[in-house]
Computed example of a mutant assay.
Amino acid sequence: MYFSIPDTTEVSAKRSSNQQAHTLFNIHINGIHHCSLRYSQLHAFHDELQRSFPVSMIHIQPFPPKKIFSLSLRETDERRLLLERYLQSVVQHKSLIASSYVNDFFFNAQRETFLNESINKTFPEKINFTIHLLNQHKITIENLSANDNTSKLLDACANKMQLDNEYLTYFSLFFYELKNNQLSIIRPLFSFESPYLSLEKALKTNGNYCLVFKRTYWDLSQDLKLIDNRRTRNLLFIQSQYDIEQSQDLYPSGIYQQLKILFDNNSLKEYILLARTSKFYGYIILKECSINDLTTNKLSQCILAIGNNELVSHLYRDDKKKANSFAKEFSFKVTRIRCWKLRKIL
């Protein structure tokens, strides 16, 4: 996940609940606004982390110090950058981001921000969620609360699909864009989010966003732990179909006809095992991307495939209508990505 603080909001004394002007730091997660917090709130957050996780906090970026006098615009911007670096280092530390305190803090911060931004607006008592699978089949989760977090919605999905609890850790919820009958991944739904609030905000930005229940792991050997259970095998089959459809243009192969025969014969397990031999099985495929081609010094359209400890870029030819529409392929081996983001160029 990528935490950023791209800007701040100045709140006048008239608008402030305590009649004091102050600055809010707008915290974004993977490019989407999550919450807005005062420096004092973040300082209290830092103090609690130091008290509860003294060893882990040794490796964290320094927290910007307090100032006696009011900050100038330049000093406020410096504080914004320091807070951004601080939060980025916190969320990259597994023991911190997995703690109940960090999850509760950002969950409550999201709720508080929503209430502050929405005068006279209250949470609905009960909410129904529409959850998509990767084959665009929909399931409805009824009677949840706006105060429920991602874990509660995930548990409700498992109950609806009669999925045993022992298998739930292999799946998670993700934001996808459903456009032109195609699902494209956006980002995971994190444990410290309110699914209701995050979806409300996402839909205001892009009305094509939806929630998808899918496999969450990168280690594809985990498939073998799920393949013999009927319900998890069905979910794996849906994932396998999606992976094959997404990567078919990248990897011409003779297995597609065999897969069709297995599908027609309802041989789901055999279909999954054969699909696993495809080059880009289990990869995240990001279409309509751009990359700076250093050989031509031009911004070129491409498709990115991410998985198996590598990032592969397929550059389009100028004429995409040709049978082989890709001109070049770049592959970068990746052993660890601490933090990364993709930026859409408009």
Rank of each mutant, 00 (worst) to 15 (best):
2 Y>F: 14
10 E>F: 10
14 K>C: 01
25 F>K: 06
29 I>W: 12
30 N>R: 11
31 G>Q: 09
36 S>E: 05
37 L>C: 09
41 Q>H: 07
53 F>H: 00
56 S>Q: 10
66 K>D: 03
73 L>F: 03
76 T>V: 10
78 E>K: 10
78 E>V: 15
86 Y>I: 15
92 Q>R: 01
101 Y>N: 00
103 N>G: 13
106 F>S: 01
110 Q>I: 03
111 R>M: 14
120 N>E: 08
121 K>C: 09
121 K>Y: 11
126 K>V: 11
128 N>H: 03
131 I>W: 00
138 K>L: 06
142 E>L: 04
144 L>R: 12
149 N>V: 13
159 N>T: 06
163 L>W: 01
166 E>S: 05
171 F>T: 04
175 F>P: 08
178 L>W: 15
184 S>F: 08
185 I>M: 11
186 I>Y: 02
191 S>D: 05
195 P>M: 06
200 E>A: 02
206 N>Q: 02
209 Y>H: 10
214 K>G: 12
214 K>C: 11
216 T>I: 03
220 L>K: 07
234 N>C: 03
239 Q>E: 15
257 Q>G: 14
266 N>T: 13
267 S>N: 12
271 Y>G: 13
274 L>M: 11
275 A>N: 12
287 K>C: 07
289 C>K: 03
310 E>N: 05
314 H>G: 04
316 Y>R: 04
318 D>K: 05
320 K>M: 09
330 F>T: 07
335 T>W: 11
338 R>G: 04
339 C>K: 03
